[in-house]
Design a protein around this nucleic acid. Structure first.
Lengths: 149, 149
DNA sequence: ATTACTGCAAAGTTTTTGCAGAGGT
DNA sequence: ACCTCTGCAAAAACTTTGCAGTAAT
């Protein structure tokens, strides 16, 4: 689980890409916060602890690369920031479900397979071949409910 | 269905907001394209047909207002643009489901109530009170499947 | 008459790009 | 040695803000 340097190096080499400290450190940073959803700026701050001279452009370029490799996922919580999270190791679980508190912004992840059936159903109706889906639920978390009382 | 000027005027007046041609025209533009998902720039172009002197700042301010009033919805298709679409007249149908072709970018809407059950289930498990949800499915539309052959 | 709204231009944010030098293969 | 990657700075793209004039109530 989390960060596997071995396999990351293998992936990079197999594509003729170079293994750099910047790339390893960015992926490590995202792996170290598996339950957070980091912005480019937050990743930048994390990586600067190890590589103070890194530029934000490298962060953006690396993020884009990691997305293309399928190692991280882009996430939009509609708060004005584009966020990123480490992907699931098991690529067969292709579901990123998020429960978002509209009051405090807390984000919980949850898994559910109910949607596989829906995917098939929608495919038949519309002619789409569905590969992936993303579900977000908005509401109030337990803490925020308590604080309102 | 779509654009109801009467009720829009009522809503604005009830909040002490002014009824301006700019606001009416922006809402009308979004209503005229109920199945499209327009960016601020696209809305700007549409509205300029009627009001050539309008500024992009007014578009942004009006979009934000219409979102707050719940008349339009923000939508993010992860293509780098924030998009907007006219809301459903019936506020009880709070589901915006989108089927996105990853090849041509076409977006289809679909309705499904399967998720109401899931909302309740998730609420019990996590303690969240869920108000709304958003589901996106990614795949290949029928046209793009044919073109690949 | 009063107060909110608009258009313009400037400024703020976030992200991308060009290029010369550094670093991995 | 080769060619990719990085850091820097500039530019691009998108959105917000301040302000003086305009329009709605």
């Amino acid at each position: 689980m989390g960060y596997n340097e071995e396999s990351f190096i293998k992936i990079l080499k197999s594509k003729g890409l170079k293994v750099t400290n910047q790339r390893k450190t960015v992926l490590k940073a995202l792996s170290s916060k598996p339950d957070q959803h980091l912005t480019a700026e937050e990743i930048y701050e994390l990586v600067r602890v190890d590589i103070p001279e890194i530029g934000i452009a490298t962060i953006y370029r690396t993020i884009q690369l990691l997305c293309e490799l399928g190692l991280i996922d882009k996430l939009n919580l509609d708060d004005g920031y584009v966020r990123y999270e480490i992907g699931k190791e098991d690529k067969n679980e292709h579901h990123h479900h998020h429960l978002i508190c509209v009051n405090c912004g807390k984000v919980l992840k949850f898994d559910d397979d109910l949607l596989d059936e829906l995917e098939k159903q929608v495919g038949k109706t519309t002619g789409f071949i569905v590969h992936d889906h993303e579900l977000k639920m908005y509401g109030y978390c337990r803490d925020c409910q308590n604080n309102r009382k």
